[in-house]
Amino acid sequence: MSGTTTVTRKRAPGKTLLEPTGKEATGRYQAPKLEIPVTPERDHIEGPVKAALTLVEYGDYQCPYCGAAYPEVKKVQKELGSELRFVFRNFPLTNIHEHAMNAAETAEAASAQGKFWPMHDFLYEHQATLGDSNVALAYARKLSLDTQKFEREITQHVYQKRIKDDFMGGVRSGVNGTPTFYVNGVRHDGDAVAKALVGALNQAKKVNSLENRE
């Protein structure tokens, strides 16, 4: 894990476009850190499990900002290849997104049968159809999942506790909306676009190599 990253305060336009700014709170600001370490046994990890760089996303399947960040993450993964492991954790904002919990449960039910990432991608690629459970079900069939088990686990909310645990872990790590990213364990306060994420990851790589040299 990298050391403390101190960033000079700057606006995150993607997140705060409409918020006026003042001039008062200048100075050094330390971004919050990931409180729940990445564990291969529990986490959904895409990329080499022992990769030097880790990008963690707390996301909500119904959130349009997460939908917009989805292809950006793909770009980051393409650019960094095997250097990067990408971790997805659930952060459904259930009061404003009525289908977010169900979608998270859908991905977890697919995960139980080893198909988390295909379902994760499918849900983000079909955000508009989230209210219709038949769409995900048809895709589960296409993935040759045991659809009876899949459906039962969703309707019985088997994975709701896990999703809520993800959520609370995120809250304690300073997740302040969706999507929230962590670059090697430090919250990324910049834009949720590929360029900014790759920049932050490359910065973390530099910190890593400096620490190794010492």
Partner: peptide, 22 residues
């Protein structure tokens, strides 16, 4: 907080509404 109607998903108060039980 500065103003009502900042962008939906990253809104501070929406988050607090979900964290309210805590």
């Amino acid at each position: 907080y500065p103003a009502d109607w900042s962008p939906v998903c990253t809104d501070q108060l929406s988050l607090y509404a979900v964290v309210m039980p805590e």
